[in-house]
Amino acid sequence: MAPLLEIKDLKLYYPVGRSGLLGKPITTVKAVDGVSFTIIRGESMGLVGESGSGKTSLGRAILRVVEPTSGKVLLHLGKKIIDITSINHDNLRRMWKHMQMIFQDPYSSLNPRMTVRDIIAEPMVANHIAKGSDLKDRVVDMARRCGLDVEQLSRYPHAFSGGQRQRIGIARALVLHPDFLVCDEPISSLDVSIQAQIMNLLKDLQQQLNLTYLFIAHNLSVVAYACDRVAVMYLGQLVEVAPTEILYYKPKHPYTESLMSAIPAPDPDNVMEPILISGERPNPANPPSGCRFHTRCQYVDTKCETQVPELIEYDSDHFIACHYAEELQLKGALEQPAAVKKEHT
C-alpha cells in the first residue's frame, strides 16, 4: 500500500471579474477548496460528482497544468518524494514524464495539423528521449498496444472516429511510460459500444504498464466497473472517500446516498425512486456556511448550518465529511423499498 500521490489541502480559486481597469478581482470561485487524499500506487481512484463540482479542476491542479492557489501535491518516486507544487517550471516539465492526462473531448485534444505519428511521437521528441528508427519503433509499439492500425499512422486526426481519436490520445499519454494518469472523463463523449472498448483498453494497459489512474467521471456505473476506490466531490470539497463496494452499497454521506439512488437498475420492472435533492447547486463563488450540502440535505440539523464537518476516517479506509455519519442509516445503490417490489410481482 505504498502511496504514489499525497494531496494535502489543495485549493484552486479562480478570480472572477475586476473592479475597474486594473483593480483586484471582485470575488473568487472556489473550484477546489481544501482537498486532501492519497492515491495508492497501482490503484484506480475514481472521482465523481455533479457538473461544476470541481472534478476537472482538481485533476488539473494535481498535475499543476493549472496553478493551484495553495496546498501540496507530493509525488513518491521510489524513495524520493517530490513536491509538485513547489518545483520550478523546468523541473515540472521533467515531472510530467511521470504524470500524464487523457482528455474528455477527443476532438479538441489532438492537434489537427499533425499526423497521428507526430502526435504520438511529440512527447519523446520534446523531451529528447528517442530519435530516428528508435522513435519510430516506440511509436509503432505504443500505437499497437492501444489498438491503432499501424498503417494509418500517417493520417491526420480528422480521418478518425471519436473512439480511435481517444486511442490516439491514450497512446500519446502513455508513450513516455508514466506512473500516473489522470483520465478526465475519457469516455463520456463516446458511443456506448465504444465506451466499453476504451474502458477495457484502459484496464489492460493498467496491468501491462503498472499504471495508477485518477478516473474522473460522472457515470457511476463506469466508475463502479473501473475503480478500486472512489472519492465523491461536492462544491469543491470531498464528502466521502471509500472502497468502491462500500461506497456504493453502504454510503455514509447523504449526498452519496442520493447519487447512488439515481443509478438505474438493469431490470425493466424496476421502478426508480431516486432521492431527489431539492434546490439548485449553490454558487461556488459564495458557498453556504457550515456543511456545504446543508441547503439540500434531507437530514439537515442546526449544527450543519454552522459547523464545518471535517473529512474523518470512520472505518478503515472510509472517509466521511458529515456530522451524523455514524447515526444515519442510508440506502446504497440498487436498494429498493420492499413495498414497491411487491406491487410489481
Binding site: V65, K97, F103, N111, E122, A173
Partner: peptide, 22 residues
C-alpha cells in the same frame, strides 16, 4: 486553453515549440 495545447505542455514542449508547432 485548447486541450491539445495543454497536452503539448504535458508532453514537455517549451513555450517556443508550443507556439511554433501547435
Amino acid at each position: 486553453e485548447e486541450d491539445f495545447v495543454i497536452s503539448a505542455r504535458l508532453a514537455g514542449c517549451k513555450t517556443a515549440r508550443i507556439i511554433r508547432r501547435h
